[in-house]
């Protein structure tokens, strides 16, 4: 690769990093700000989302705590939590670290990002609800990056009370 071309690629990666980081922030803010309808839109149409414990992930288990194979299942989850599911009102705040990115092809990245999520109940009870890492595969071919796959690996195999909003 010529020095000139590799400079272009590098700049390109710097821009993509910004776009990816912005997308990661938008993703958690849409959940934290009760705009969960936006959540499936961060995925490509046949995108995959899973919440699984570290233990289950390491064991190669198919089943974790949530499993959406395609955007449709994510939309069904959103509809269910809005219209069908009963739970005590609560909100999350996600704190995410700077993602560690690896370019896997001209159109794709893989990423690992650690996170912590607090959960605040309507009566004021506030606790660390989840911690772990996002293991992502990203599609950067379009205007904004999208998840091909987001695996939420939880440090703990134990969920406090229930998990209704995505992480």
């Amino acid at each position: 690769m010529s020095a000139e071309l590799s400079a272009v690629v590098e700049r390109d990666e710097a821009v993509l990093r910004i776009l990816i980081e912005d997308m990661f922030s938008d993703y958690v803010h849409s959940i934290d700000d009760d705009r969960v309808e936006a959540w499936p839109e961060y995925f490509i149409d046949n995108g995959f989302y899973q919440v699984i414990s570290q233990e289950g992930y390491e064991a190669g288990h198919a089943i974790g705590v949530m499993h959406c194979d395609g955007k449709g299942m994510m939309q069904d989850r959103v509809k269910a939590m809005r219209q069908a599911n009963i739970f005590e009102p609560h909100r999350y705040t996600h704190v995410i670290e700077r993602p560690r990115l690896h370019r896997t092809s001209s159109d794709t990245f893989s990423a690992r990002t650690n996170f912590i999520v607090t959960r605040t109940m309507q009566n004021g009870d506030m606790e660390t609800f989840a911690s772990g890492k996002y293991l992502d595969s990203l599609d950067v071919s379009g205007k904004t990056p999208k998840f091909r796959r987001r695996i939420v690996v939880l440090d703990s195999r134990r969920i406090d009370i229930l998990l209704v909003f995505p992480l």
Binding site: V51, I63, V65, M66, H67, C68, M73, D76, R77, A80, A84, N85, I86, F87, E88, I159, I161, L162, L163, V164
Partner: peptide, 16 residues
């Protein structure tokens, strides 16, 4: 498996 468990679309209410 999405229907049951801690995040079960059907059964998550049983957690609370």
């Amino acid at each position: 498996a999405n229907l049951t468990g801690a995040g079960g679309l059907v059964s998550l209410e049983d957690g609370c």
